[in-house]
Design a protein around this nucleic acid. Structure first.
Lengths: 379, 379
DNA sequence: CGGCTTATCTTCGAAATCGAAGGAAGTGAG
DNA sequence: CTCACTTCCTTCGATTTCGAAGATAAGCCG
């Protein structure tokens, strides 16, 4: 079942251009790859013969002959990806275009430690594979997101705050013992950003804010995921302006997370006598026009927006996409926008779009697919 | 005198690798370009015959035969670059490795408007060229930095605060009428970052803070200059935490610039009865241990550091380089460091280096050269 | 409908690129 | 010093890639 793609350099490039949706025809491949049209035709023929690419009807004309659309052959392979949360893991199989074939959610406790958790994920992968993938279609790559920082060099989890037992654990190596394949391990917010990026074509610089139980942020800079040293995108422990003083779990006063995260809002609601168990419940309360909830969410949005002003001035993105379970609450986005428009430089906000995330619930899985394709379709 | 390089794709790549100092021998060129060693040899031979490359002795052995060092031929051409400030312009000629040949500083008033200012720069270029460049050595590119935001697409200056008459002026087009050559127009802090980048080899993610009359910042992300939509790197109008409330020239309260810029410090010193005319004078005062000056600089450093905490968490750079005329004051760097170490995530500061800028006074000119080489050595 | 324009894809000789093999010029160990 | 080994660079035949030209298939427009 394990089998690397027999695709060398230039062929891999072509395959990747099709897989990532950047090219749909030979002509587009020629334009994007820089290769001559004739060379592309030859290569594509080989890829079709190898069962990796397939022709699928005709595309839309741009004024001349209609292109013959290319797509990855369904039999070319699948990817197995997971997004690990604190209490749940969302996992599934993708085709080589990064489109989900099956997705399911299982409960799992991350505090069980890396071995048991990862093995359970791998078991789930195997189940899905036998159930949904015809024999002969190879698994081409495995990837998982984790709710903590990942060292981009060693692919180990580093000093995660809510993952006891995971510190410095070689996640990728562990998975690699079970799958002799390209393995991806990445922070969940980064995966979400990578997944979101496909929904904003032409957007070179993108920030994706994940407002859920915690507050995460993933960054696309120059069209590529910005990792920094593995911790990039952390905005939850930025100090916010505040009258009172709340100490965050990290030990510092007045972290954004302590005021504007789903967890903080739930605590505040509990103090006001309203009991909720998930951030999504807050959204329900807001939609039911419960004043305490609305006011809290609006406040949280302002706080997030104030932090974003700094980052928008500095990073000057084309788009800020807001996702996560809390983002379904209208007032959140509205007040983020208000804060940013008010305080940012006109030049930075001139063409800035602050919009709801588009990639939906499978954003992280799609992101894992997108990143894996880069690795799995080379060499 | 004007002449484009007769260098197509692959050759241009090779030339650029040598010019930017990334490769010094045929073997390195082969490794970095991905071309076969034999092809590189052929190409290099052609480039030498064309008078663009030259062999220069032998390099140091890596355990085998010593490489024959390659460098750009001194006769291959020069670049003319300028860095425009409010009252001065620093300009000079570079060889095609980006090394300065002549640099001089002239006074000039940016409020004279773009035409007169640019023409004066061009006149200065012509003088330098006739004086310092033998006839036959062609000018290969022209570039200038401006103290305001530049739209990376149109190469026009956009809404500059201190450049009356420059708004939306087509700087590049104006220069292009005089020079039929690649023309570069870029924000001065961005140029400084590009120039600094060469002094931090292996550093993919770099922030360069320029502390002078104003506060600027340039960003290198993934090894490339990050422009955003042209305004990236602006940190001067970030809101800082403050007891009192000072309104900045931009209309917002408590901008970093209003507290920590050289201009703000000079104002504060004047109020304390100490008159200074340039930010460099503040450094002198600090070195003479004038308590008011030291205290002010230390305060400014803290403020800058507090803003940097947000950005370091978010961007997670390898290096923060601090330059500009104020950076020569020891306490500035010290207090920036203190603020960042204190408040940033341990993961973000684990391998972070906060250090004085290395590129010196010609950083911006060198940066202009580095960016121009990318453009001038292609096609 | 029938030219005109635009675009996609293929064919085939010319040109560039590769890669294996080998010579040249070093290092280091015995 | 000699010998094994490494790295750098070139030579030369095999292969790949290019690019101009042509075939094919549309859309546009009176």
């Amino acid at each position: 079942m394990n089998q690397r793609l027999p695709v060398q350099g230039p062929q891999g490039d072509l395959l990747r251009l099709v897989a990532t949706g950047r090219a749909e025809s030979r002509a587009e491949l020629s334009r994007l790859s820089g290769l001559a049209a004739s060379s592309v035709s030859l290569r594509v023929e080989e890829l079709i013969d190898a069962g990796l690419l397939a022709e699928e009807g005709a595309g839309t004309s741009r004024g001349g002959r209609r292109p013959r659309r290319l797509r990855l052959s369904p039999g070319a392979g699948v990817l197995a990806v997971a997004d690990l949360g604190a209490h749940h893991v969302r996992l599934g199989l993708l085709d080589l275009s990064g489109e989900p074939l099956v997705v399911e959610e299982r409960s799992c406790d991350i505090t069980d430690g890396p071995r048991r958790t990862l093995d359970r994920i791998a078991d789930a992968f195997d189940e899905l594979l036998t159930e949904h993938v015809p024999p002969g279609v190879p698994l081409r790559g495995v990837g998982t997101g984790v709710p903590g920082p990942v060292d981009p060099v060693t692919l180990r989890v580093v000093t995660p705050s809510r993952m006891p037992g995971w510190n410095d654990f070689p996640v990728a190596e562990h998975l690699a013992t079970r799958y002799d394949l390209p393995v991806l391990v990445e922070n969940d917010a980064n995966l979400m950003a990578a997944g979101e990026a496909r929904w904003w074509p032409g957007t070179e610089n993108l920030m994706v804010v994940k407002a859920g139980t915690g507050i995460g942020c993933g960054v696309i800079a120059g069209g590529r995921l910005h990792r920094g040293r593995g911790a990039a995108g952390d905005i939850s422990h930025v100090r916010v302006r505040s009258d009172s003083s709340t100490v965050c779990a990290c030990g510092h006063p007045d972290c954004l997370e302590a005021y504007a995260s789903g967890a903080a809002l739930m605590t505040a609601l509990a103090e006001a006598g309203v009991t909720v168990t998930r951030p999504a419940d807050i959204v329900t309360l807001v939609n039911d026009a419960v004043p305490e909830a609305t006011s809290l969410v609006r406040h949280a949005g302002r706080r997030i927006g104030e932090v974003l002003t700094v980052l928008v001035n500095f990073f000057n993105p084309d788009v800020v996409a807001v996702g996560g379970s809390l983002s379904a609450a209208e007032p959140l986005l509205t007040s983020i926008r208000a804060a940013v428009w008010e305080r940012c430089l006109p030049l930075a906000t001139r063409d800035l779009e602050i919009a709801p995330a588009r990639a939906g619930r499978d954003a992280a899985l799609r992101g894992a697919g997108a990143l894996l394709l880069e690795a799995a379709l080379t060499l």
